[in-house]
Design a protein around this nucleic acid. Sequence first.
DNA 1: TGTACATCAGTGAACGCGCGTTCACTGATGTAC
DNA 2: TGTACATCAGTGAACGCGCGTTCACTGATGTAC
Lengths: 183, 183
Amino acid sequence: MKVSREQVAENRQKILDAASRLFRAEGFDAVTVVDVMKAAGLTHGGFYGYFKSKDDLIAQTLTYLTAQGARADTDLARYAASYLSPAHRDDVAGGCPIAALGAETVRQTPEARAALAEGLRNRIEGFAASAPLTEAAIVRRAAIGSYAAMVGAVILARLAQDPTLADEVLEQTHAWILEGTKR
Amino acid sequence: MKVSREQVAENRQKILDAASRLFRAEGFDAVTVVDVMKAAGLTHGGFYGYFKSKDDLIAQTLTYLTAQGARADTDLARYAASYLSPAHRDDVAGGCPIAALGAETVRQTPEARAALAEGLRNRIEGFAASAPLTEAAIVRRAAIGSYAAMVGAVILARLAQDPTLADEVLEQTHAWILEGTKR
DNA sequence: TGTACATCAGTGAACGCGCGTTCACTGATGTAC
DNA sequence: TGTACATCAGTGAACGCGCGTTCACTGATGTAC
């Protein structure tokens, strides 16, 4: 049955929210259109009223996640502290989309890649812009180096099955970044 | 038809080599058993004479890749130079399995995870062991922080569609690591 | 404001397809004599 | 060393299943009068 215009907007939101969590938790291929619609409280047939295809959903979900991420803290030290926390490591479904999906997004459509790539660019520029006044080249180097270390560390910490090693990767990378940005 | 024992060993090698490249290039889900066997020059029916299942192939391929990786250079500076090269960034199929598959391996079987996790542990210990004589804690921090930055940088560089940004991520991370390990 | 009807969001059965896996068969290998 | 035969690696058709996608239908919405 037809639903109101507000309901349509709300349902679109619900589909994107469900897809955001499911894709990060299980990857693009393992999540089906049926899974996403069920998680959004709808049946699968209605999906194509909202999105052209599953690939379209992937691209729009990454755009949605990037837009959300653009509102994050741009202070590098504070960002690193929360990024390199055990809470973030353990929350794949709600965590950084680049750490969860960056590697496999390289094989998705150009639209999907473009969405995440914009998130990457925003993050680096945000860090560089909010840094204390130093030489621009040094600030940019710290922004890129630190961000690469954060993304890598979360991936490594999630991979390590030994909890001691997983914690150590986060802590040591955090300390390493703090030392590096004080140079 | 039956083939010789040497041929069997050679075919197993070919299957693992084909799987190693295909999985890194396209991900676990996108590569089919038919793809792997075709790339190895065989038909798909014979697959189950070599492996119990596709999951078994995934786990054994990661073990195979980790064993190969164990023979790599343990000098951090030399390793970083080649890891952070455009050649490595552009060679997903032949490159570091952790950068290509680390994030999605978290969702695979415990056997698959264990194989890559061992590669991670070996790498960190190799870097730490081959470092010049300094305080052990500092060496370990540099090993972990640098490795996290390398893995993250290659993933970010592959994601960035803008070639200038992709090159910059590699170069800046490389410089950042060199500065950090000279402390 | 109230009524009549066109619109269209959501439903669920159905589709074609490609996947992982199985299996009867083939014929070269390698062993027993 | 040569021969006879059991073994078994590889083949390709076939399977059941779940995927992305389509579509006829339903009934609440929202517009026209």
